[in-house]
Amino acid sequence: MSFTLATWNINSVRLREDIVAKLMADEAPDVLCLQECKSPVEKIPQEQFQSLGYTHMVARGQKGYNGVAIFSKIPMVEAGAEDYANLGHARHIAGKLENGVTVHNFYVPAGGDVADREVNEKFGQKLDYLAEMRDAFHKDAPKKSILVGDLNIAPREDDVWDHKKLLKVVSHTPVEVEALAEVQDAGAWVDVTRTDIPDGKLYSWWSYRAKDWDVADKGRRLDHVWATPDIAGAAHGSRVLRDARGWEKPSDHAPVFATFDL
Rank of each mutant, 00 (worst) to 15 (best):
W226M: 08
I197L: 07
R194L: 14
S207G: 05
L151I: 11
N86G: 08
F260D: 03
A244K: 02
S204N: 15
K139D: 12
A136E: 01
T228P: 09
D261N: 13
N152I: 09
A59F: 10
Y65E: 08
R194K: 10
G246M: 10
V177E: 12
Y208E: 02
G219S: 06
D230F: 02
P40H: 06
D83C: 06
Q62D: 04
H224G: 00
V190F: 03
H138N: 13
Y54F: 14
D212P: 13
P142T: 08
W161G: 07
V148L: 11
I74K: 05
V101E: 06
A110E: 08
G200I: 02
D261I: 09
K144M: 15
E182C: 07
T102S: 02
D191W: 06
Q125D: 03
A94L: 03
G100V: 01
A188G: 14
A69W: 14
D214C: 11
A81N: 07
V31F: 12
G88R: 07
W161E: 11
I153T: 07
A186K: 08
V101H: 09
Y129N: 06
Q50M: 12
G80W: 10
D199K: 03
W247C: 00
R220T: 04
D30G: 05
L167W: 11
Q184S: 05
A244M: 09
K122F: 00
V225G: 13
G95H: 09
A110D: 07
W226A: 01
I93W: 12
D243V: 10
K73A: 12
G112H: 03
K164V: 02
P45L: 05
L130K: 11
G237C: 04
H163S: 15
N152G: 09
V169R: 08
A254M: 03
E121R: 14
D128Q: 10
G100L: 04
E42N: 05
L262N: 06
D214M: 15
Y129P: 12
Y107W: 10
P109G: 07
D113G: 02
D113A: 04
R245Y: 06
K168R: 10
